[in-house]
Design a protein around this nucleic acid. Structure first.
Lengths: 220, 220
DNA sequence: TCGAAAAATGGACGCTTGTCCATTTTTTGG
DNA sequence: CCAAAAAATGGACAAGCGTCCATTTTTCGA
């Protein structure tokens, strides 16, 4: 019986390496230079490869940008999924894991925020990026909604669907706002403060399910 | 005694008109084509003027973009100030006016949102735009913080400064998130729902100062 | 080991960009 | 009404863009 390992030719390994180098270089350029500054020349210079590679591995600059956006998206979900797996199984723990992970340094950092907002700014024009952006949004939205629905039902709310929808909507909007805050003031940003505020929001909605460890309640 | 009215030469009036036409055309282009699509050719075509005008009225495309951003900023504050003047004088009414105005169709519409996020995406690279963006943020942040501080003191919170800071931070982040939500799903967006969620947040922080008219509390 | 095939190179190409300026048109004040 | 001044025009220009392809280099399978 032949070993399947090491069966893949060197050629393909090197090919894949260059492919990834192009994607990484593209994301680096977007983070540092913005979309406008991310030219083919800038990308291939950073990747240390030749001009023609972009046309060989992708079908031009647009496709490269699209695949770079998809890879970024995949990284986001890999990190989130790992955190959700490590967290406890209860809805409260899952929600808190989403919040803390989304605000953690693994996801909310200067590189990631720069790329994210650069893409969003041009998403309207480029369908490829808009699709990926919406997909990310929809997946996360649905997951967090289901979690809140379980909480709302266990809390015996009058209208659990509406409450869960509001909770999901508000939590995502808050997280989004924290990202924008970080983008504009990366040095003044305080991770604990951002986390505390989101938890304040949740504690306001579900007082018996979320508590502020360390933070005083706003009113007695 | 000479009349001062009509003293200004026709020349200056026409000059100013063309200047404004360039700024408006620039903002239209950014809204429809994105920053990348906003070329000098696109701008002058939309304005119905000749190429050289950009260099005559401004000192090139960059300055034009900067002044366009400043004008957008001025429009935002004019609308907000008018709403605050029309609203009642109490801190609660002032906060609610900010929220409702920020989410009103006068400010939160497709044109405005497109321009806003297009600028933000490239703000990192262009100092001129970044400065205006931060200024807007700082002005609004301070105003809303002072208002919350009054509320927190009247509510006799244990730490009014921290509570007011959290409330201002959270409210702005929520509004920011609602804008992003509108940008991505302008048709699915529900203005009342967004407003209700922000008020839920405020009611959670200050139960005796904000109430949800029409909305059920999440828990009894 | 060697011919075939795949991968990588980098220069040439046409096109668009923003800037600038010689020219024309309009407006002004006497 | 007319000369001087201001405003507006639009083409020329160099620089930079993304694409493409003839050529060279590397890897593969027999």
């Amino acid at each position: 019986m032949e070993r399947q390992v090491d069966k893949k030719p060197t050629r393909d390994i090197l090919r894949e390496r260059n492919r990834m180098a192009l994607i990484t270089a593209t994301l680096d350029c977007v983070a540092e230079l913005g979309i406008a500054g991310t030219s083919v020349s800038a990308i291939i210079e950073r990747a240390g490869l030749s001009r023609g590679m972009i046309h060989l591995h992708f079908d031009g600059k647009d496709k490269l940008l699209e695949e770079a956006a998809q890879q970024l998206n995949a990284q986001y979900y890999d990190t989130l999924d790992a955190a959700l797996l490590a967290a406890g199984p209860s809805p409260e723990e899952q929600v808190e894991a989403i919040v803390r992970t989304d605000l953690s340094v693994d996801l909310l950092n200067e590189r990631y925020a720069n790329i994210w907002y650069a893409f969003r700014g041009e998403a309207r024009k480029r369908d490829s990026i808009a699709v990926f952006s919406n997909t990310r949004d929809a997946r996360l939205r649905n997951r967090i909604f289901q979690t809140f629905l379980a909480i709302a039902r266990s809390a015996e709310c009058p209208e659990p669907e509406q409450v869960a929808r509001d909770a999901a909507h508000g939590t995502l909007a808050l997280l989004e706002g924290m990202w924008a805050d970080f983008l504009l003031h990366p040095h003044a940003f305080r991770r604990e403060e951002a986390t505390r505020i989101v938890l304040r929001f949740l504690a306001g909605l579900f007082p018996s399910h979320f508590t502020l460890s360390g933070a005083q309640p706003a009113e007695r």
